[in-house]
Every structure is written in structure tokens, then in C-alpha cells.
Nucleic acid binder design. Sequence first.
DNA 1: CTAATATATGGTCATTTTGACCACAAGTAA
DNA 2: TTACTTGTGGTCAAAATGACCATATATTAG
Lengths: 231, 231
Amino acid sequence: MTAKPAPDSVIDALSIDCLVFGFKDGRLDILLIKHGEGISEGRWALPGGWINYGESIDDAAKRLLHSLTGISNIYLEQLKAFGHPDRYPTKRVVTIAYFALVKEEHYSLIPGFTASDAKWFSVHEVSDLPYDHPLILKYGYQHLKHKVRHEPIGFNLLPEKFTLLQLQELYEAVLETTLDKSNFRRKLAKMKLLKKCDEKQKDVSHRAAGLYKFDKRIYVTLKNRGIAFEL
Amino acid sequence: MTAKPAPDSVIDALSIDCLVFGFKDGRLDILLIKHGEGISEGRWALPGGWINYGESIDDAAKRLLHSLTGISNIYLEQLKAFGHPDRYPTKRVVTIAYFALVKEEHYSLIPGFTASDAKWFSVHEVSDLPYDHPLILKYGYQHLKHKVRHEPIGFNLLPEKFTLLQLQELYEAVLETTLDKSNFRRKLAKMKLLKKCDEKQKDVSHRAAGLYKFDKRIYVTLKNRGIAFEL
DNA sequence: CTAATATATGGTCATTTTGACCACAAGTAA
DNA sequence: TTACTTGTGGTCAAAATGACCATATATTAG
């Protein structure tokens, strides 16, 4: 990298957009906010905003998500930068998209000052997003499909304690397929990543299933031993 | 910070850095350039530069790589944006790192006007890179290790036609392991991604091996049928 | 209470895949 | 000739997979 920027080599602005996935009642959701100000006022779009000067881009994503929706302390990773020259109408804006997974039950949404509203939408029913947000969604959903098979991140979409059927339904929803119950359990059991709680489901109108937790400590040890997660 | 920056102009500049991998004689290399001007003058660093106003970031990466090294028409994908506030000394620069794979036949380098020199270095011997380039290298090498196992991108590091042993040695170098010759071939054969040429190695002092080509068309059909590449 | 129903949980079995090895062929060099 | 290197194909036991099946446990309708 050279040090002197050429006179015409400046981007007008660098923004952040967050693609937040949630899972509830067998449905895969994404979180949108209704913009209270700016160009896309009144439209549902990905939560986002501008990076501050002394702030890392990861921190900016955390701050923006929290201030727009009240959500904090979740699985968050950088997805990709999107920078087509025409992606934003009035000027040259490059955006860095973030990818987040949320335990939906744990958060009641609190719209922040630039968001007049925040709401969960089914991934498959979202449409009419502004800018290149449809592209970001498509890319991010592909990323989720891939990542969920190669790393144990699905648990970030479920409550702390969950049943094996819930987990299976999550995978079925994300991967848009059906899985054999028995084989799914066998595979999970072999990985030894789940710790059985001494608890069962409550308030269900059938035999109660046992509750499990994802044990991150075990995963880290296995990973360090070179054992990969594949599903 | 004395003056509060306007909300949409808080980053001083957006740059590109390219992490270019090559493979030759069983060694995994990366491409560095010696900076001819600017802050890091005289030091070896990742090739990079500034994005132009009307240019997509992908195009900027292609242009910069070509103008600095003469390399074009290669495997290139976005890696990640790096934006720690202190990553660059004099001002706030966010960089978007790119990830490239180069075939041996494109190994000859033509240093461009801001690079006084360009050279291949063994991945394991590189040190003393400026800025956060060590971090980018580490992240990118991890990315390569992961990706090479889940997508057939390794072929981008080999000549058009290659032997099975060359391919195996590539995997061994990237993954830092050894593989069983027989099992490796069996697995490859089952995937049906390689097309045997009617040619053999030349000028070798032992039995000449058959040459193979990676058939991208077959891969695309298989992928569309949902069949994954795993090694 | 009993039967129907829904889910949990565990098992079978043929087939495929894997990992570790082995044997020999083909070509070069001394 | 022999030694050496690499290519190519094979064996075999162990492990993993995919498609089913069987039974247990809880709830609710009658």
C-alpha cells in the first residue's frame, strides 16, 4: 500500500450493515428496521450506519446493532464488503456487511433513535429491500447454509437449553431439507458436543424431550485436537 | 478528536491489500512488493493501493495487482476488511484484503511504477511485514487451509495440466500434513472432477506420470446437483 | 379406563467410505 | 544387471452412512 492517496481516490463514506438471523417456531427470520430518517425513510431495510473515527469496524457493528434494536452480546462476524459504485444513489458508499445470529426469544426489540421500528421477517418472505440489500441477504444466507454445516454455530440461534428435535428443525429450516431423526441424533451423539441437562421440556402435550446444552469448552478442545465439525 | 467528524465522512481512506498465494517446487509462497514510495518505503509488504471513485472494489483489486506486478486473470476473491483504528500510523485507513491464487506459469513478475520490486517468499519464512499485514497473512492462510478442503480451488495454484503427485504435494504443503498416495487418488477418482489428458510428463528421470486437467464444467454440474467437494 | 395419537429414544442392517498397507509395473541411472 | 524412484492398482478390516423399524412414554378423546 502506498501512503499518498491520489487526489481522486477517495470514497465518500464507509458504512456498516447487519444481517441478523433469528429462529423461532421452525422459521428462519431476519431482522429489519424501518428507517426513521435518511434516504430510505419509511422503508424496511437492514440495520446499519456509519463507523466512528476511533472505533474498530467490529465495534461499530456492535454499537449500531445495539443502538438500533437493543440487541447486544450475540454471535457477530464480518461477512463481506460491498462496494459497487452504484450501490448507493447519491454518492460513493462502501458498506461492510456483518453477519449475526440471535436467540430470538431472549430479545424484545427496542427501536433506537434512527429506527422508528424493528421487526423479524421470514427469510423467504422478505422482498423489496433497498440498495443492494437483496444481494447482501442472498450472500449472507448462502454463508449461513455453508457455515452451519462446517462449524457448530447453529446453537447461537436456539435457547440455552434445547431439545434434539428443535436442533433438527433448525437445520432443516436453514438447509431447506429434511433429515432422518435417528441418524441425526446418532451423528450428534458421536460428536459429544452436547451436554444433557437434568431437565425435561415442560408444558408440552406429549412425552417431554430431554434438554441439552452446547458445550463450547468441549468444542474448543476437540478443535485443537484437529477434529472437525461436519454435518 | 477535537472537531466532531460529520457522520458520513469519518474514515480517511479505504485501501486494498492483496494476499497472493503461489505454489512452486513443493513450496507455498506469497507475493510481496518492495514499496518505492510512501511510509513503508523500502520494506516488503502486501501489494495494495487505493480504490478509485467510480470503480468497484473487485475491479480495484484487479487493477492494483496488475499494475504492481503484471499479474492478471487469476483466481481472486475478497478476504476480509481490516479496520482497527491504529492499524495505520498517520490516519484512519480501513483496508479490504483480497485473496488470490496464481498458477506457476504466471510466476514471472513485472513490478509496476509504485513497486520498485516484486518477489515470491515462502509463506513460512515471511516476517517483519508492516502495519497489520502479519494479521492479514495469518487470517488468509487459515482461509486457504479451510477453503482448499471444501472447494476445488487448489487447481488454481497448479499449471493447466498437472500430475496427481503434484496435486497431492500441493495439498500436503497447504495443509502441512502427509497424505496416503493411494487413498488420495481413489478419492479424486470418485469425484470425477479431473479429466485425463492424452499426455504424459516429459523430461523426468523416472516413469512419466499421466497429466490431468481440472474440469470446471463438471464441477459446476455436480455442485448444482448438490454434491459437495470435501477432502 | 382404554384407545388413538404424537413424540422420544434406541436398534438393525446392507452399503459406502475410510485408513493403513501391500504388490507390482514402468521408466531412469549406475 | 541392479538399485531407485514414481505410477497405478489392489486388499481388508474398521468406521460411517442411509433407510428403516420397534418400542417407550406422555397426552387427550371417548
